[in-house]
Design a protein around this nucleic acid. Sequence first.
DNA 1: ACAACAGTTCAGCGGAAAATGAACTGTTAA
DNA 2: TTAACAGTTCATTTTCCGCTGAACTGTTGT
Lengths: 224, 224
Amino acid sequence: MQHDLGSMAALIGDPIRANILWALLDGRAYTASELAVTVDTTPQNLSMHLSKLIKADLLSVEIQGRHRYYSFSRPEVAYAVESLAGLLPAKPKEAAVKEDPPIRTCRTCYDHLAGRVGVALTETLVKQHLLDHTGNKFNPTPKGIRWFNALGIDCEALREQRRSFARACLDWTERRPHLAGSLGAAILQKMFDDSWLRRIPNTRAVLVTPKGRKALSDLLHLNV
Amino acid sequence: MQHDLGSMAALIGDPIRANILWALLDGRAYTASELAVTVDTTPQNLSMHLSKLIKADLLSVEIQGRHRYYSFSRPEVAYAVESLAGLLPAKPKEAAVKEDPPIRTCRTCYDHLAGRVGVALTETLVKQHLLDHTGNKFNPTPKGIRWFNALGIDCEALREQRRSFARACLDWTERRPHLAGSLGAAILQKMFDDSWLRRIPNTRAVLVTPKGRKALSDLLHLNV
DNA sequence: ACAACAGTTCAGCGGAAAATGAACTGTTAA
DNA sequence: TTAACAGTTCATTTTCCGCTGAACTGTTGT
């Protein structure tokens, strides 16, 4: 009697490694830094976990320049992970399964953020009283000005520009207004700079990075 | 990002719990003490592990008198365990899978042990020079006498009995001699006493308990 | 050429969980 | 009714392994 089934399960049993595997379940390959953000740990710690998963041949790496893309080494891994998840007590919200619909939920409109994400972001800012909405204009509140400043966005400087500062733009899928103008453009730029978003070549669609997904969910759900 | 897939895998990830699950994979229900022997740990420790598996609804108990029979609570558990085992690197000896053939490999012949197990035991004792084989008689060596004494079997006392002491009996399935006589009977009795074996009602077949399986494999493979 | 970045390695710390020993409840058999 | 047995619970110790900080290699862009 001695079976190293346990070592395999223990490998998956660590919360960080389990989250890595869960994230990879969509079949895509992620870089180490992306995974570090999604599973919320330090790069060096993540690196250790990844190396263990590699050594056990659960994951494989593809090196491209200075990036390393990690993914399942074989389909059995995904099956095993799913069968384990199947053992969990039935969740109240099964909705967690349904993934983010197609990419066009997040896209650019000229130079600012549109789509579902753009609308949701705008509505949240209004609801949090960081932004006032009057007619086809937005206006940051005093609290909002401080908030934008904390992000490194200087409202006063933007207001100086020739173009309109914070106008409302109607989203054609959501049919609801979202933030445009130089302020909207600054936010979008900030999101690219911070790697929340990544442009998809030759389209107006934008990919939300794992880091961005986390940041946005923090932003849109609870925090100020 | 947060999934308790990890907690489930961690549950299986402990070596003792993994061995428990592996042992239960044959679909039978085992008592706590049987499991304690097979996974080679103390009863208290095993009890802790079992309670965790129960709480997670991986196992279920059926109480019969002072015994508690543990088994999988649902078939998904077995599937998950198997899928995990499928992730292990391909073993050189796949033979480990083939279980002990039917029960008649181990049975009593009048009052002593016969079948494959009885023959194997006898041959091992001879090979270890604990027993001499001449004609249709066996005879314990000096070393063998000490060994039997350590088991609580007094060869001198047995030799005093009216019946034959250590004769060779031909097994009808194995076609090979095995130990009979009062010495063979004493060994069988000892095995029942120590719960290595359990009689199957209304037959001459004998069930090797997990404890016995372990003890016999120690005995027949390496040790003196 | 240099700075920023992606990623890894290593030594030492700390905490969670498993193992241990002792005491306890309930059951069976003499 | 007593003793042996099956099994559990609890407090304590021990062990293991994930985490951190610092230093390192290799790559990209300017």
